[in-house]
Amino acid sequence: MSTLRVTAERLTILDHPDADALELAQVGLYRAVVAKGAYRTGEFAVYIPEQAVLPEPLIDELGLTGRLAGSARNRVRAVRLRGELSQGIVCRPGALDGVDLERAAADGTDFAERLDIVKWVPPVPVSMSGDVDAAPDLLPWIDIENLKRYPDVFAPGDPVTVTEKLHGTACCLTFHTGSGTLEVTSKGLGARRLALRESDGNLYWRAVRGHGLPAVAAALAERLGADRIGIYGEVYGSGVQDLGYGANAGAGLPGYAAFDVCADIGGQLSWYDPADLLDGELPLVPRLFHGPFDLDRVLALAAGNETVSGRELHIREGVVIRTADGRYSPDLGGRAIAKVVADAYLTRKGGTEYE
């Protein structure tokens, strides 16, 4: 998931191709359907992204009662309105009357707390939960931001690698070279510095043991001379999420595909493309492209069907883009890495979003 930030943004207003009373307000590369004439190009408004959970008074104020997602009808998600994908909400809440939105945009002010907006946290199935221990020395993982919100992360021609984004649950393993110990966690638990106790029934530990990650991590630590090794992968299959890729995680070995590697060498963290280190050692997320960045190419790659199963069983979730040299992005304040989520994935019916 991306970081939740509710910010003021400069709008570009576009015609809606199939509705005279509607227009499209563009923020970055996102587009939200708005009433015709409500905003003009160059004006500033508040953008509330997908996965935001809104308080009831704000829902009432915006005229969205009963129209949002979730059992409480309070969660923002992508929808199609008269054929156009609408991602997020563009508005000017009454609680911000008198606020200079242009200045707030320049300052990067986050209005989430002021508007009582929180990030949606998906429920965790029993197979993904378990007893936990404090783990302050876990290697970190990050929320990957959406390229549509940060379209300037990559410049045309930047050398990038594009991999398929899988719809599973992130498994984060930290191997400590000195003690030989392993810590296994999910993305959500890892952010709280908690590790799962080993259990035969736990999905993450089943994937780690079943795919031989401990031996791979130990060998990689020796090869790189690292104090700690982090291997990050997606665990998938039926019983994990609604897109299963032909793997049966409930009755058999869960599917697994590594998507990132981190090494702590003398206190310095370095990130590696798993294709450079783990090819032939572990299953990897499919690499779809390696070459100069081109926005249209990336957006096209985000669509279509998955390639993990080899049978194109269902839609693709999207893609992840990163620079080949792992450079720093001032837009993100960290690694130059971003994602694009497929429109068909966002608007599918009966989807699950466990973390």
Score class of each variant (00 low, 15 high):
H16I: 07
D18E: 11
D18R: 11
A19G: 08
A19H: 09
D20H: 08
A21W: 06
L22E: 11
E23S: 14
L24N: 08
A25V: 09
V27K: 05
G28D: 13
G28F: 09
L29W: 12
L29M: 03
A32L: 02
V33D: 00
K36Y: 09
K36L: 06
G37F: 14
R40D: 02
T41G: 10
T41Y: 09
T41F: 11
F44K: 02
Y47R: 13
I48Y: 07
I48S: 07
P49G: 05
V53M: 01
E56A: 10
L58C: 05
I59N: 00
E61N: 02
E61A: 06
L62R: 04
L62A: 01
G63C: 05
G63N: 06
T65A: 14
G66D: 04
G66N: 04
G70F: 07
S71R: 11
A72V: 06
A72E: 15
R73M: 03
N74T: 06
N74Q: 12
R77H: 02
V79P: 00
L81E: 14
L81G: 00
L81C: 05
R82C: 10
R82N: 13
R82F: 12
G83V: 01
E84C: 08
E84D: 05
L85Q: 01
L85E: 01
L85C: 02
S86G: 04
I89W: 03
V90G: 08
C91I: 02
C91M: 03
R92I: 11
P93K: 06
A95G: 06
D97M: 10
D97N: 15
G98T: 06
G98D: 09
D100T: 05
L101S: 05
E102A: 14
R103Y: 13
A104E: 04
A106K: 13
D107H: 09
D107C: 04
G108Y: 03
A112S: 15
R114G: 06
L115W: 03
L115A: 08
D116Y: 02
D116C: 07
I117M: 06
K119F: 11
P122K: 10
P125L: 07
P125M: 05
P125R: 04
V126Q: 15
V126E: 15
S129W: 10
S129N: 12
G130Y: 02
D131H: 04
V132N: 04
D133S: 13
A134D: 15
A134K: 14
A135R: 07
A135L: 09
P136C: 10
L138Q: 11
W141I: 09
D143M: 08
I144L: 15
K148Y: 11
Y150M: 00
Y150C: 02
D152H: 14
F154M: 03
F154T: 03
